Amino acid sequence: MTADALLDRALVEEATKKSGLIWVRGSGPARALWHVWHDGAALLVGDGPGEQPLPAGLEAGAAAEVTVRSKDKGGRVVAWTAAVLVLEPHSEDWEAAVAELKGKRLNAPDAERMTERWARECRVLRLVPGAARTQLPDGSLAAAPLPTGATTRQPAPAALHRLLLKRRGRR
């Protein structure tokens, strides 16, 4: 391996370890995902009830584009191509990955039975880094937010201002 390749690999590892989120693109739009860096790869869990939705196209043997942001500034640090491995539930690799992920999973409703649920209903992925691109693109790569049912922005009811004014007058 050349010195540049070793430096790129070190940048990928350090940036990904320190970042709380990575942006992962499979065959569809990229998604921000929480992850754990372990044993030279990013580990993800998702696609089950109560877990993060994984992007389309993250199948065994596929390639994914990973963009790592800076934890303090939020800007893009490095982008790298990953080989996607889907870990089989209760395999040796799956058990090691789940042990790392379990310690970082926040606010799980069923922390004591979480790994059982992951084995039944979720997918655990290992993203192994390949080529890194440290040169950042010229454009912003900004995209419209993905559609979600969590949107709360609706027009205010017509009578809302009268209700607010009435309360102010009572004081």
Rank of each mutant, 00 (worst) to 15 (best):
A62P: 02
G28W: 03
D39R: 13
A79P: 04
S70D: 15
V68F: 06
S27Y: 01
T16M: 07
E51L: 13
A60R: 11
G40P: 14
E88D: 14
H35Y: 09
G40I: 05
G48I: 01
K18A: 03
R76D: 14
L21R: 12
W37A: 05
G46K: 05
A30S: 15
L43P: 00
E88Q: 15
A60I: 01
W34G: 07
V84H: 01
E13W: 01
T16I: 05
L58W: 06
A62H: 12
A83W: 01
V84Q: 01
Q52N: 13
D72T: 10
P29H: 10
G40H: 12
E51S: 15
A32P: 15
R69M: 12
A42Y: 01
L33G: 04
T67L: 04
K73W: 12
L54V: 03
W34Q: 11
E88H: 13
A41I: 00
V66I: 12
H35L: 08
D39V: 07
V36I: 14
L58A: 02
R31N: 14
E51H: 14
P49K: 08
W34M: 07
V86G: 10
S27G: 09
D39G: 07
K73S: 15
E59P: 04
A79K: 08
G61V: 02
E51N: 13
V78K: 09
S27W: 02
K73F: 14
E14H: 11
G40A: 04
A10W: 12
A63I: 00
W80M: 01
A83D: 13
P49C: 06
E88F: 06
E14V: 06
S27E: 11
E65W: 13
D39E: 15
T16E: 08
P89M: 10
A63W: 00
I22F: 04
I22S: 04
A62K: 11
A56T: 02
D39P: 09
L58H: 01
E59H: 07
R31E: 13
V68T: 12
L11D: 07
E14A: 11
R25H: 05
V45Y: 00
V86S: 12
